[in-house]
Computed example of a mutant assay.
Amino acid sequence: MTPTTPLDRDAVVYIAGHRGLVGSAVWRHLEGRGFSRLVGHTSAELDLRDRDAVEAMMTSVRPEVVIDAAARVGGIGANNAYPADFLSDNLRIQVNLMDASVAQGVERFLFLGSSCIYPKFAEQPIREDSLLTGALEPTNDAYAIAKIAGVLQVQALRRQHGLRYISAMPTNLYGPGDNFHPHHSHVLPAMIRRFHEAARAGLPSVTCWGSGTPRREFLHVDDLASACLFLLETYDAPEPINIGVGADMTISELAETVARAVGYTGAIQWDPSKPDGTPRKLLDVSRMSELGWRATIPFEEGLRSTYEWFLEHEPVVRR
Results as ranks from 00 to 15, higher is better:
Arg194Ile: 05
Asn172Gln: 10
Val26His: 06
Glu314Val: 15
Val317Cys: 02
Leu291Arg: 14
Glu312Gln: 15
Phe35Arg: 12
Lys274Pro: 00
Val151Glu: 10
Glu308Phe: 01
Gln153His: 11
Pro298Trp: 10
Asp68Tyr: 00
Val106Tyr: 03
Leu203Pro: 00
Asp248Phe: 02
Pro204Ser: 09
Tyr143Cys: 01
Pro238Ser: 08
Arg287Gln: 14
Val22Ala: 13
Gly244Tyr: 05
Ile241Glu: 12
Gly246Lys: 10
Leu110Asp: 03
Arg92Ile: 00
His18Asn: 12
Thr265Asn: 11
Ala261Cys: 14
Val54Cys: 05
Leu229Ser: 04
Leu157Ser: 01
Ala56Gln: 15
Ala44Val: 04
Leu303Trp: 05
Pro6Ile: 12
Gln160Trp: 11
Arg318Met: 08
Gly77Asn: 07
Val151Pro: 01
Asn79Pro: 00
Leu291His: 10
Arg92Phe: 07
Ala247Asp: 15
Ala44Arg: 11
Thr2Val: 14
Ala53Thr: 03
Ala190Phe: 15
Phe230Thr: 06
Ala237Trp: 08
Tyr235Asp: 05
Gly75Ser: 02
Pro63Arg: 09
Arg127Asn: 03
His220Ile: 02
Gln153Cys: 00
Pro279Arg: 09
Ile76Cys: 04
Ser43Ala: 14
Met58Tyr: 09
Ile297Glu: 06
Asp284His: 11
Asp248Tyr: 04
Thr257His: 02
Ser286Trp: 02
Lys274Ala: 14
Asp223His: 10
Leu38Asp: 06
Ala201Leu: 12
His183Tyr: 15
Thr171Trp: 02
Gln160Lys: 14
Ala122Ser: 11
Arg51Ser: 13
Pro238Phe: 04
Phe218His: 13
Gly113Lys: 02
Thr5Met: 11
Met288Cys: 15
Ser101Met: 03
Leu224Pro: 09
Asp50Ala: 05
Glu107Phe: 00
Gly212Ser: 10
Glu308Val: 13
Tyr264Val: 07
His184Asn: 12
Met249Thr: 09
Gly105Ser: 04
Ile76His: 08
Leu97Lys: 04
Trp270Arg: 12
Pro214Ile: 06
Val66Trp: 07
Leu291Ile: 09
Gly134Cys: 08
Leu48His: 03
Asn96Tyr: 02
Thr278Ile: 07
Asp8Arg: 14
Asp236Ile: 04
Lys120Pro: 00
Lys147Ile: 00
Ile268Asp: 07
Asn179Ile: 10
Leu303Glu: 04
Asp248Arg: 06
Tyr307Gly: 01
His41Asn: 14
Ile67Trp: 07
His313Phe: 10
Phe310Thr: 05
Gly212Arg: 09
Glu256Gly: 14
His186Thr: 11
Thr306His: 06
Arg287Thr: 14
Arg158Val: 10
